[in-house]
Amino acid sequence: MKHDDIRHMLSEYIDGAVKPKQKAVIESHLKSCAECRNALAELNKTIEYIKKVEEVDSPGWMTQKIMAKVRAEAQQKRSFFHRLFYPLASKLPIQAVAVLFLAVTVFYIYQNVNPTEKYAEAPAFIEAKKEPPAAGTSMNEQKMKRDSLPAAKQAPQAPGYKSPDMKYMYEKPAVPSPAERKPSSAPVEERDIMKDKDLSARAKKPEALSPYAGAVAKDEARSEAPPSAAKAKAMSVGEIKEAGISLSVIVKDTNTAGKEVEKAVARLNGRIIKTESFENKKSVIIRLSASQFNELVRKLKQLGEIKEKGLASPAQAGDVDINVELLKSQMQK
């Protein structure tokens, strides 16, 4: 090793960080080199000075201040874990509020959406109602329809109940093709019957449901109809609305005439959907092929005088619903 190399290794030599072989070489060189010996002495002295530098003391508050910061850090960490893994402590109020909000929202949506869904599956029976009146519709029949709308409008509704008329009032009448109506006819019939029962039950207790029912009857009375007839009309508002064609037949005996109508309907391959009997009136709702309508009218003429007629003849093919009201002849006197 050269002098300069040994000179550079003196620092390591002082720390004892040289290999034994190197150490021997350095020590041998130091014996013969005064400059290196002097450099070594100065280095030792320098290190001695450095080591003698007194250490500064940490202030008494240092530990407490550090630990205060560390505890704050630990608390922060714990809070984070608390939020993640201890839901009951912190999440419960949030969850409770969320569930409550969800429940209220679902209830609100159900209240608003449910009626729409009900009408989305409009039965064929009601679809028939939407058809525009044929040219032969009597003025009386049209008046009955007009009367039914304000009555339905004015009547306050039971909670959750939405008048089917609302749909008719705002929706454009659509004429479904027979092909479209046929597949849905079978399940719809049952619903129709249920709905008719519901409506008739409501018609039987108009006061209970509608405080304005009396006003409707009053209007009817103003149209110079006998009070009982007005009452009957008021009661059958639901049925009239539902029926596609409405006919009134004045007969001597409503029961006998009713049986005759049933026989005629059976012969014409029709079907009695509903029969309602009142004091001086019998109401029969019939579902019949449109082609058989004239035959039914002819049969009804045999039973008595046809007073009212919703449609002279159904315009469309397929089945039609006909509301036949058999009125006792004495009532008209």
Binding site: S58, M67, V70
Partner: peptide
């Protein structure tokens, strides 16, 4: 935390 405090006490002067 007590263990950590021991380490703080032990080394705070050296680190300072």
């Amino acid at each position: 935390l007590d263990a950590f405090e021991s380490l703080v006490r032990k080394y705070e002067k050296k680190m300072l």
